[in-house]
């Protein structure tokens, strides 16, 4: 094990967490991510028993999950273990797997369903049906590409490019504050 200390995407000593009115914003550093793409000859795998979802959808099975990112492409979610891609690759023979854990800032947004709905209305230009529980989609938020995963009525995960973590946090914080 290395003795080097990793830095959360937002750059603080510990993952950020903030309550703004009814909205709680939390930085996640425990999520492992790996992208998975089908190769021409490969049959669709079921890594960790996950049935890979179709466009706009996500699935969860115990501590693993997957969401659709494009035709023949998914992101697999699990626990951070330093080399999540290797774990996924073993589950998806013949597929192209790439480590993505460090490429993203992962933020959880928890709020009562109504407040979360209002917040989404202020943040992204998507019809509500694109973000019902279980849905996952990539879109624009404040000029940044983000992935939104609606975990439940009251919980949303926002993933953005790691280098944009500060700007994304600012956008979410600011919008939530205007709501409060």
């Amino acid at each position: 094990m290395t003795d080097l200390i990793p830095e959360p995407a937002l750059g603080a000593d510990a993952p950020m967490r903030r309550e703004i009115g009814a909205v709680t914003l939390t930085e996640r550093t425990d999520v492992g991510l790996a992208s998975l793409a089908l190769r021409a000859a490969a049959s669709e795998p079921a890594p960790f028993g996950l049935i890979l979802p179709g466009p706009g959808d996500s699935v969860v099975l115990q501590d693993k999950g997957a969401f659709w990112t494009g035709p023949g492409q998914w992101m697999i979610e699990g626990s951070e273990n330093g080399d999540f891609a290797a774990t996924v690759a073993a589950e998806a023979p013949g597929c192209s797997v790439t480590e993505q854990t460090d490429g993203w800032v992962v933020l959880d947004l928890v709020a009562p369903a109504e407040a979360l709905g209002t917040l989404l209305e202020r943040l992204v230009n998507l019809p509500p049906e694109a973000l019902t529980p279980g849905k996952a989609t990539r879109t624009l938020m404040h000029h940044m590409s983000v992935v939104l995963i609606r975990r439940s009525d009251s919980r949303l995960t926002v993933m953005g490019m790691r280098s944009l973590a500060g700007s994304l946090w600012h956008a979410l914080e600011d919008t939530a504050a205007r709501l409060a």
């Binding site: 750059g11 404040h142 000029h143 280098s163 944009l164 500060g166 700007s167 994304l168 956008a171």
Partner: peptide
Amino acid sequence: SGDTGPGFRPRRLPPTHR
């Protein structure tokens, strides 16, 4: 739409920024 100051445009920070 209130995008002033740090919200004016997205800013990317490399990993060694801090």
